[in-house]
């Protein structure tokens, strides 16, 4: 009986690892979609409403409080710390996957440097979209595979250990 419970646990743990890898793929797709949504929102605030980046941050903090928890502290540090460093910290604190975080970090830096906003947004969105397509393809190809591999690996391990 104990042996069977052990087999079950090994298979379940291994299957969970496979499922977790598959969920990670799904999370990456979701992060990239959210990155695109954020970029779109920023584009509107910057290009249409002509808000300054600190004002944009406040707008984003109101719209996405979970992603931007410490904006007031960040803005208070602006006289002491260059904006690109603050922005980069904000993006990191958002907890997005690197493929989504890097274009957003680069976007803030480009805008604060004086790059043409439309061009900066286009570049950011192009990077996010391309990464999103890659991630979606990967998810489709490998999502079930990872779960199945996890379960199969668990079974194999259980047989070996038996």
């Amino acid at each position: 009986m104990t042996g069977w419970i052990g087999v079950l646990l090994v298979v379940a743990a291994s299957g969970a690892m496979g499922t977790s890898a598959s969920l990670e793929l799904r999370r990456r797709v979701r992060d990239l979609e959210e990155g695109l949504e954020l970029s779109g929102r920023m584009r509107m605030e910057v290009c249409v409403r002509r808000l300054s980046l600190p004002q944009v941050l406040q707008v984003l903090a109101e719209a996405y409080p979970r992603r931007f928890p410490d904006v007031q502290d960040t803005l208070a540090a602006l006289p002491q710390v260059p904006f690109r460093l603050l922005w980069s910290a904000v993006v990191q604190a958002m907890g997005l996957c690197p493929e989504a975080g890097e274009p957003l970090a680069a976007l803030g830096e480009a805008l604060s440097r004086g790059d043409e906003p439309e061009r900066a947004f286009a570049l950011c969105e192009e990077r996010l979209r391309a990464a999103g397509e890659r991630a979606a393809r990967l998810q489709e190809e490998r999502s079930r595979l990872y779960t199945a591999l996890g379960v199969a690996g668990g079974c194999l391990l259980a047989i070996v250990l038996w």
């Binding site: 002509r50 808000l51 300054s52 602006l78 604060s112």
Partner: peptide, 14 residues
């Protein structure tokens, strides 16, 4: 560059 950043609140486009 820092003067410009502070004067424009890091938003030269605005």
């Amino acid at each position: 560059e820092r003067v410009l950043e502070l004067a424009t609140e890091a938003s030269p486009y605005a």
